[in-house]
Protein backbone atom coordinates (compact mmCIF):
# COMPACT_ATOMS: atom_id res chain seq x y z
CA UNK A 1 0.00 0.00 0.00
CA UNK A 2 1.35 3.44 -0.89
CA UNK A 3 2.38 6.11 1.60
CA UNK A 4 -0.35 8.50 0.54
CA UNK A 5 -3.03 5.96 1.37
CA UNK A 6 -1.46 5.21 4.75
CA UNK A 7 -1.37 8.89 5.71
CA UNK A 8 -4.92 9.42 4.59
CA UNK A 9 -6.14 6.42 6.55
CA UNK A 10 -4.40 7.64 9.70
CA UNK A 11 -6.15 11.00 9.39
CA UNK A 12 -9.46 9.32 8.91
CA UNK A 13 -9.13 7.14 11.98
CA UNK A 14 -8.10 10.12 14.09
CA UNK A 15 -11.32 11.82 13.06
CA UNK A 16 -13.52 8.79 13.26
CA UNK A 17 -12.64 7.26 16.61
CA UNK A 18 -13.77 10.18 18.80
CA UNK A 19 -16.90 10.49 16.70
CA UNK A 20 -17.66 6.82 17.21
CA UNK A 21 -17.12 7.01 20.95
CA UNK A 22 -19.32 10.07 21.29
CA UNK A 23 -22.14 8.96 19.04
CA UNK A 24 -22.18 5.33 20.09
CA UNK A 25 -22.70 5.93 23.78
CA UNK A 26 -26.27 5.46 24.85
CA UNK A 27 -27.91 7.95 27.10
CA UNK A 28 -28.82 6.44 30.44
CA UNK A 29 -32.12 8.20 30.77
CA UNK A 30 -34.06 5.68 28.75
CA UNK A 31 -35.45 3.54 31.55
CA UNK A 32 -39.13 4.28 32.01
CA UNK A 33 -40.66 4.81 35.42
CA UNK A 34 -43.82 3.18 36.68
CA UNK A 35 -46.68 5.58 37.31
CA UNK A 36 -49.99 4.57 38.79
CA UNK A 37 -52.92 4.95 36.43
CA UNK A 38 -56.65 4.54 36.89
CA UNK A 39 -58.62 1.90 35.01
CA UNK A 40 -62.29 2.34 34.19
CA UNK A 41 -64.63 -0.52 33.34
CA UNK A 42 -67.99 1.11 32.78
CA UNK A 43 -70.92 -0.49 30.97
CA UNK A 44 -74.33 0.99 30.34
CA UNK A 45 -76.98 -1.59 29.47
CA UNK A 46 -79.85 -0.29 27.40
CA UNK A 47 -83.08 -0.28 29.38
CA UNK A 48 -81.27 -0.91 32.66
CA UNK A 49 -80.26 1.39 35.51
CA UNK A 50 -76.75 2.79 35.60
CA UNK A 51 -75.13 0.36 37.97
CA UNK A 52 -71.91 -0.91 36.47
CA UNK A 53 -69.08 1.59 36.74
CA UNK A 54 -65.90 0.38 38.34
CA UNK A 55 -62.67 2.24 38.89
CA UNK A 56 -59.47 0.47 39.83
CA UNK A 57 -55.80 1.28 39.85
CA UNK A 58 -52.76 -0.29 38.27
CA UNK A 59 -50.27 -2.19 40.40
CA UNK A 60 -46.58 -2.77 39.97
CA UNK A 61 -45.64 -6.13 38.57
CA UNK A 62 -44.10 -7.16 41.85
CA UNK A 63 -47.29 -6.51 43.82
CA UNK A 64 -50.05 -8.97 44.37
CA UNK A 65 -53.19 -7.71 42.70
CA UNK A 66 -56.36 -7.90 44.76
CA UNK A 67 -59.72 -6.46 43.84
CA UNK A 68 -60.08 -5.01 47.30
CA UNK A 69 -56.88 -3.03 47.13
CA UNK A 70 -57.29 -2.16 43.48
CA UNK A 71 -60.68 -0.54 43.90
CA UNK A 72 -60.63 3.26 43.94
CA UNK A 73 -62.92 4.64 46.59
CA UNK A 74 -64.27 8.13 47.13
CA UNK A 75 -63.86 9.21 43.55
CA UNK A 76 -66.22 11.82 42.22
CA UNK A 77 -68.09 10.00 39.44
CA UNK A 78 -70.81 11.54 37.34
CA UNK A 79 -72.65 10.82 34.12
CA UNK A 80 -73.94 13.55 31.89
CA UNK A 81 -76.81 13.04 29.46
CA UNK A 82 -79.26 15.44 27.86
CA UNK A 83 -77.71 18.36 29.75
CA UNK A 84 -78.34 16.64 33.07
CA UNK A 85 -75.56 15.45 35.31
CA UNK A 86 -76.03 12.52 37.64
CA UNK A 87 -73.66 11.80 40.47
CA UNK A 88 -72.91 8.16 41.13
CA UNK A 89 -72.36 6.66 44.53
CA UNK A 90 -70.04 3.92 45.58
CA UNK A 91 -71.54 0.62 46.66
CA UNK A 92 -71.24 0.08 50.39
CA UNK A 93 -69.82 -3.37 50.03
CA UNK A 94 -67.70 -3.12 46.91
CA UNK A 95 -64.62 -0.99 46.70
CA UNK A 96 -64.41 0.96 43.50
CA UNK A 97 -67.87 0.08 42.18
CA UNK A 98 -70.30 2.94 41.55
CA UNK A 99 -73.95 3.21 40.66
CA UNK A 100 -76.73 5.72 40.26
CA UNK A 101 -79.03 5.27 43.25
CA UNK A 102 -82.05 6.51 41.30
CA UNK A 103 -83.13 3.32 39.55
CA UNK A 104 -85.78 5.10 37.55
CA UNK A 105 -83.09 6.56 35.35
CA UNK A 106 -82.62 4.02 32.59
CA UNK A 107 -80.18 3.88 29.71
CA UNK A 108 -81.96 5.09 26.60
CA UNK A 109 -81.18 4.01 23.05
CA UNK A 110 -79.74 6.77 20.93
CA UNK A 111 -78.71 8.91 23.90
CA UNK A 112 -75.13 10.06 24.29
CA UNK A 113 -73.58 9.64 27.71
CA UNK A 114 -70.50 11.31 29.08
CA UNK A 115 -68.62 9.83 32.03
CA UNK A 116 -66.57 12.15 34.25
CA UNK A 117 -64.29 10.97 37.02
CA UNK A 118 -62.19 13.03 39.40
CA UNK A 119 -59.88 11.41 41.89
CA UNK A 120 -56.96 13.26 43.43
CA UNK A 121 -54.83 14.39 40.50
CA UNK A 122 -56.64 12.12 38.02
CA UNK A 123 -59.30 13.50 35.69
CA UNK A 124 -60.89 10.95 33.39
CA UNK A 125 -63.60 11.17 30.79
CA UNK A 126 -65.30 8.99 28.22
CA UNK A 127 -68.22 9.20 25.79
CA UNK A 128 -70.58 6.62 24.35
CA UNK A 129 -73.87 6.51 22.46
CA UNK A 130 -76.31 3.75 23.32
CA UNK A 131 -77.53 1.42 20.55
CA UNK A 132 -81.09 0.23 20.21
CA UNK A 133 -82.21 -2.91 22.04
CA UNK A 134 -81.30 -6.19 20.45
CA UNK A 135 -83.87 -8.94 20.25
CA UNK A 136 -83.26 -12.60 19.53
CA UNK A 137 -85.99 -13.57 17.12
CA UNK A 138 -85.49 -17.30 16.87
CA UNK A 139 -83.37 -20.25 17.89
CA UNK A 140 -83.43 -23.65 16.33
CA UNK A 141 -83.35 -25.62 19.58
CA UNK A 142 -83.45 -25.27 23.35
CA UNK A 143 -81.99 -28.69 23.99
CA UNK A 144 -78.95 -30.04 22.25
CA UNK A 145 -77.39 -33.48 22.39
CA UNK A 146 -73.70 -33.11 23.01
CA UNK A 147 -71.43 -33.05 19.96
CA UNK A 148 -74.44 -33.15 17.73
CA UNK A 149 -73.51 -32.31 14.13
CA UNK A 150 -76.55 -30.05 13.88
CA UNK A 151 -75.50 -26.61 14.84
CA UNK A 152 -77.14 -24.23 17.21
CA UNK A 153 -78.50 -21.32 15.19
CA UNK A 154 -79.79 -18.05 16.47
CA UNK A 155 -81.25 -15.00 14.72
CA UNK A 156 -81.72 -11.51 16.03
CA UNK A 157 -82.94 -8.14 14.82
CA UNK A 158 -80.48 -5.57 13.72
CA UNK A 159 -79.98 -2.94 16.41
CA UNK A 160 -79.75 0.66 15.29
CA UNK A 161 -76.53 2.34 16.34
CA UNK A 162 -74.68 -0.93 16.77
CA UNK A 163 -71.27 -1.33 15.12
CA UNK A 164 -71.03 -5.03 15.91
CA UNK A 165 -72.38 -7.94 17.89
CA UNK A 166 -70.70 -10.03 20.50
CA UNK A 167 -72.09 -13.48 21.14
CA UNK A 168 -71.13 -15.49 24.18
CA UNK A 169 -72.03 -18.82 25.67
CA UNK A 170 -71.83 -19.18 29.39
CA UNK A 171 -72.22 -22.42 31.29
CA UNK A 172 -74.29 -21.94 34.41
CA UNK A 173 -74.84 -24.16 37.42
CA UNK A 174 -77.54 -26.75 36.71
CA UNK A 175 -78.02 -27.60 39.43
CA UNK A 176 -74.31 -27.64 40.19
CA UNK A 177 -71.20 -26.51 38.43
CA UNK A 178 -71.05 -27.45 34.77
CA UNK A 179 -70.22 -31.06 34.25
CA UNK A 180 -66.94 -30.95 32.46
CA UNK A 181 -66.85 -34.64 31.88
CA UNK A 182 -66.90 -34.65 28.10
CA UNK A 183 -63.24 -35.06 27.59
CA UNK A 184 -62.95 -37.48 30.45
CA UNK A 185 -65.37 -39.70 28.54
CA UNK A 186 -62.75 -39.92 25.86
CA UNK A 187 -60.09 -40.88 28.32
CA UNK A 188 -58.24 -37.60 28.13
CA UNK A 189 -57.64 -36.31 31.62
CA UNK A 190 -56.10 -33.03 32.41
CA UNK A 191 -57.26 -31.21 29.31
CA UNK A 192 -60.45 -30.19 31.10
CA UNK A 193 -58.62 -28.03 33.59
CA UNK A 194 -56.71 -26.45 30.76
CA UNK A 195 -59.91 -25.53 28.96
CA UNK A 196 -61.54 -24.14 32.05
CA UNK A 197 -58.49 -22.02 32.73
CA UNK A 198 -58.33 -20.84 29.15
CA UNK A 199 -61.82 -19.52 29.12
CA UNK A 200 -62.15 -18.00 32.55
CA UNK A 201 -63.75 -21.04 33.97
CA UNK A 202 -66.96 -21.22 32.05
CA UNK A 203 -67.34 -18.65 29.32
CA UNK A 204 -66.59 -18.91 25.66
CA UNK A 205 -67.21 -16.12 23.28
CA UNK A 206 -67.53 -15.66 19.56
CA UNK A 207 -67.02 -12.25 18.15
CA UNK A 208 -69.08 -11.04 15.22
CA UNK A 209 -68.36 -7.57 13.90
CA UNK A 210 -71.21 -6.11 11.96
CA UNK A 211 -69.19 -5.98 8.78
CA UNK A 212 -69.31 -9.70 8.54
CA UNK A 213 -73.02 -9.72 7.95
CA UNK A 214 -75.06 -8.36 5.12
CA UNK A 215 -76.10 -4.81 5.67
CA UNK A 216 -79.39 -5.44 3.97
CA UNK A 217 -82.22 -6.95 5.89
CA UNK A 218 -83.10 -6.90 9.50
CA UNK A 219 -81.95 -10.27 10.63
CA UNK A 220 -78.54 -11.07 12.01
CA UNK A 221 -77.62 -14.68 12.47
CA UNK A 222 -74.99 -16.99 13.77
CA UNK A 223 -74.55 -20.70 13.68
CA UNK A 224 -72.57 -22.18 16.47
CA UNK A 225 -70.51 -25.26 15.84
CA UNK A 226 -70.99 -27.87 18.55
CA UNK A 227 -67.64 -27.07 20.10
CA UNK A 228 -68.90 -23.76 21.48
CA UNK A 229 -70.60 -25.96 24.05
CA UNK A 230 -67.72 -27.76 25.60
CA UNK A 231 -69.50 -29.11 28.63
CA UNK A 232 -72.79 -30.74 29.45
CA UNK A 233 -75.19 -28.50 31.25
CA UNK A 234 -77.21 -25.35 30.99
CA UNK A 235 -75.94 -22.49 28.90
CA UNK A 236 -76.96 -18.88 28.67
CA UNK A 237 -76.35 -17.68 25.15
CA UNK A 238 -76.12 -13.91 24.95
CA UNK A 239 -75.93 -11.51 22.07
CA UNK A 240 -74.69 -8.00 22.74
CA UNK A 241 -75.17 -5.11 20.36
CA UNK A 242 -71.96 -3.13 20.81
CA UNK A 243 -70.61 0.18 19.61
CA UNK A 244 -67.30 1.23 18.15
CA UNK A 245 -65.35 1.71 21.39
CA UNK A 246 -66.09 -1.84 22.53
CA UNK A 247 -65.36 -3.12 19.05
CA UNK A 248 -61.95 -1.40 19.14
CA UNK A 249 -61.21 -2.98 22.49
CA UNK A 250 -62.12 -6.47 21.34
CA UNK A 251 -60.00 -6.23 18.20
CA UNK A 252 -56.93 -4.96 20.04
CA UNK A 253 -57.12 -6.69 23.41
CA UNK A 254 -54.47 -9.33 22.69
CA UNK A 255 -51.28 -7.73 23.89
CA UNK A 256 -48.17 -8.70 21.94
CA UNK A 257 -44.66 -8.65 23.29
CA UNK A 258 -44.70 -4.89 22.92
CA UNK A 259 -47.39 -4.72 25.67
CA UNK A 260 -49.34 -2.22 23.69
CA UNK A 261 -52.47 -1.03 25.41
CA UNK A 262 -55.70 -2.06 23.71
CA UNK A 263 -57.52 0.83 22.12
CA UNK A 264 -59.40 2.45 24.95
CA UNK A 265 -61.78 5.40 24.95
CA UNK A 266 -60.97 6.81 28.37
CA UNK A 267 -59.16 10.13 28.34
CA UNK A 268 -56.69 10.54 31.16
CA UNK A 269 -56.62 6.84 31.99
CA UNK A 270 -57.14 3.29 30.83
CA UNK A 271 -60.29 1.33 30.23
CA UNK A 272 -63.65 1.36 28.56
CA UNK A 273 -66.87 3.28 28.85
CA UNK A 274 -69.49 1.84 26.55
CA UNK A 275 -73.18 1.28 26.15
CA UNK A 276 -74.61 -1.98 24.90
CA UNK A 277 -77.83 -3.86 24.66
CA UNK A 278 -78.26 -7.52 25.32
CA UNK A 279 -80.63 -10.38 24.85
CA UNK A 280 -80.24 -14.01 25.83
CA UNK A 281 -81.64 -17.48 25.51
CA UNK A 282 -81.06 -20.69 27.40
CA UNK A 283 -80.03 -23.97 25.92
CA UNK A 284 -79.37 -27.26 27.65
CA UNK A 285 -76.66 -29.57 26.39
CA UNK A 286 -77.41 -33.12 27.26
CA UNK A 287 -75.05 -35.97 27.62
CA UNK A 288 -75.30 -38.60 24.92
CA UNK A 289 -76.87 -41.81 26.10
Amino acid sequence: MDTGSIVMMRKLWIMLIPALIWTGCESTGMEPEYEEQLVVSAYLRVGEPIDSVSISRTFTLESRYTEEEAGVSEARVSIRVDDKEYTLREYDDRNGFYHLPDKTVRVRPGATYELLIDYQEHHLAGVTTAPSPVNITSVNADTLPFMDPDRFAMNWDKADGADGYLVTTQATPWPEKPYAGRLADYGVEGIVDFQLAQFGGDTLQAFSPISQYGVDGLEQTIEFPWHMFSWYGKYTVKVYAITSEYLDLLTTQNQTGAFEDPVYNIEGGLGIFTALSMDSVTVVVQRNQ
Binding site: M30, P32, Y43, F59, F259, E260
Partner: peptide, 29 residues
Protein backbone atom coordinates in the same frame (compact mmCIF):
# COMPACT_ATOMS: atom_id res chain seq x y z
CA UNK B 1 -38.01 -3.97 24.16
CA UNK B 2 -40.99 -2.57 25.97
CA UNK B 3 -40.43 -2.97 29.66
CA UNK B 4 -43.48 -4.29 31.52
CA UNK B 5 -44.05 -1.82 34.32
CA UNK B 6 -47.25 -2.84 35.95
CA UNK B 7 -50.47 -4.78 35.82
CA UNK B 8 -54.17 -4.20 36.03
CA UNK B 9 -57.44 -5.96 35.44
CA UNK B 10 -60.18 -4.90 33.10
CA UNK B 11 -63.71 -6.02 33.82
CA UNK B 12 -65.84 -7.17 30.89
CA UNK B 13 -69.59 -7.85 31.12
CA UNK B 14 -69.02 -11.57 31.75
CA UNK B 15 -65.42 -11.97 32.84
CA UNK B 16 -62.16 -10.25 33.71
CA UNK B 17 -58.82 -10.05 31.97
CA UNK B 18 -55.38 -9.12 33.24
CA UNK B 19 -53.20 -6.72 31.30
CA UNK B 20 -49.67 -5.45 31.43
CA UNK B 21 -48.84 -1.79 31.70
CA UNK B 22 -45.98 -1.29 29.28
CA UNK B 23 -43.51 1.54 29.22
CA UNK B 24 -42.90 3.59 26.14
CA UNK B 25 -42.41 1.42 23.08
CA UNK B 26 -39.02 -0.32 23.12
CA UNK B 27 -37.63 2.18 25.56
CA UNK B 28 -35.54 -0.37 27.43
CA UNK B 29 -32.73 -2.60 26.21
Amino acid sequence: YTRPLGQYQLRYPDHQESFVVGGHRNNAR
